[in-house]
């Protein structure tokens, strides 16, 4: 392990970046079963609904995990069901399959535990832009923020928690058959 703290931070950030890029490739190459392997068994996957609220009332801007409605609020069992449904070939919302590209950027490691040089758990913030084109002219561009917790398992990293903040209050897409 490097002793120079800047170097250690760079290496950690590099690892996390590679994790995200591999993840994006798995999703965009429709290797969803392999994507599931990147998630811990007790993963939390949560996408709150955004509201338009008065300045100063930001506490109610997003629906609450564990209490309110959301776009997603689930774990691996449901995520696996989604993947199984896609694989049936008769999930008409994704048959024929859409084309997607996940762009992941602004990646910042906010916290590394127990320390940067020997991290086994990290909190990471990033932005995403997911482009989807379906059939001929159905096109969605979904943009937002992700707050993740990754944990080191054996040789690699796994996603233990992901909060997805879509930058829309009325979802301007007809469905969310995709993963973020």
């Amino acid at each position: 392990m490097p002793t120079d703290p800047t170097l250690a931070a760079l290496l950690l950030e590099h690892e996390i970046r590679q994790f995200y890029f591999v993840e994006a490739d798995l999703l965009d190459e429709r290797r969803f079963a392999e994507w599931l392997d990147l998630l811990t068994d007790d993963v939390r996957y949560f996408a709150p609904i955004a509201r338009n609220i008065r300045r100063g009332e930001e506490a109610s801007e997003l629906t609450r995990e564990g209490f309110d409605a959301a776009w997603f609020d689930e774990g691996k069992v449901t995520l696996r069901q989604r993947v199984e449904q896609l694989a049936t070939g008769i999930h008409w919302a994704e048959e024929p399959q859409s084309r997607t590209s996940h762009l992941v950027t602004n990646i910042r490691v906010l916290e590394a535990l127990p320390e940067v040089a020997a991290a086994v758990e990290v909190r990471v913030r990033s932005r995403f832009l997911v482009y989807r084109n379906r059939l001929a002219d159905e096109t969605d561009i979904l943009v937002g923020k992700r707050s993740d917790t990754l944990v080191r398992v054996d040789a690699g990293w796994k996603l233990a928690r992901r909060e997805i903040q879509l930058d829309q209050s009325v979802l301007l897409a007809k469905n969310l058959t995709l993963f973020f």
């Binding site: 409605a69 776009w71 609020d73 449904q85 999930h91 979802l171 897409a173 007809k174 469905n175 969310l176």
Partner: peptide, 20 residues
């Protein structure tokens, strides 16, 4: 809540096919 969200709405595994 968990059941409703996986059934209905844009991420609902049932409603998605209706909307298509």
């Amino acid at each position: 809540r968990h059941y409703y969200l996986r059934y209905s709405g844009p991420a609902g595994m049932t409603e998605q096919d209706d909307m298509e």
